[in-house]
Nucleic acid binder design. Sequence first.
DNA 1: TCATTATTGCGAATGAGTCTCAACGTGATC
DNA 2: GATCACGTTGAGACTCATTCGCAATAATGA
Lengths: 151, 151
Amino acid sequence: MASYSSTALKAELNERGWRMTPQRETILTTFQNLSEGMHLSAEELCELLKEKGENISLSTIYRNLKLMARMGILRELELAEGQKRYEINQPAPHHHHHLICVRCNKTVEFKNDSVLKVGAKMAEKSGYHLLDCQLLIHAVCPTCQRSITPV
Amino acid sequence: MASYSSTALKAELNERGWRMTPQRETILTTFQNLSEGMHLSAEELCELLKEKGENISLSTIYRNLKLMARMGILRELELAEGQKRYEINQPAPHHHHHLICVRCNKTVEFKNDSVLKVGAKMAEKSGYHLLDCQLLIHAVCPTCQRSITPV
DNA sequence: TCATTATTGCGAATGAGTCTCAACGTGATC
DNA sequence: GATCACGTTGAGACTCATTCGCAATAATGA
């Protein structure tokens, strides 16, 4: 857990002329304490925090999810149509990919270091600074293959 | 080109109780005639067809892009924030992945068969019917790394 | 402690994508 | 090849995730 401390976040923010805020710390630690493979949409995060008595406005949540994804702290996932979900971006042993049923959105997570290596090599080769690398597999799950309901 | 004929599309549609329409044929052949690595959003496709004198309503375009993606004929890509783009889904020698700058959206395409194999194997192992397999790399391009503009 | 200015929260605005429904056209049947 | 059932289209209204604008607030560096 906690592969990225709030102290490190503060340092990185300040380095770029930005500021650490209680809201940012709350968001970071919330994602760090999520169980592995768990991800949240902006709305869900807002609800979760409300339940814990820590209200953060939806605008602020949207702004910071985007910011932290662009810093490489969070991964932005599109597992279901119509809304983005976020999870903490973890290094090699915990890093994983997603296999998604396009009909029912059932998702299987899997790990594969060779894919991660391909991604890292490709980014380096092109002079890009790597933030996230995800193999996204769209498919039809066994249940949906059997169902009559088409597409 | 034309890895998927409109006759084959008609057959597959009819098999499921659906119908071939001139609009569907137009959309399919438009994507087939696009140069490699070119992709279109719904709006762009609508404009392109309008220029060619073939008007298809935006609703119909949205409906069919989604349908054809779920049939595995098109790939759905999210290369820039806020809108989906589509390209023809081609097999092994033409199949490719994307490296994207999260700041300026500059995109590099690359091929890697081993990644495709990992995807196919994972889908099979879980009993899923594979539709598309894309390695999505989010990164910061050399130009944006140098620019002052943050995140 | 103070000044600067990034950040927050609220509500309004945006816009990609979906829905509704009447008119139309495809494909199966005879 | 005429008919019928029903899937599809087009137009516009609508949805809702996300962004924007702005005044109030609060981190940071001096």
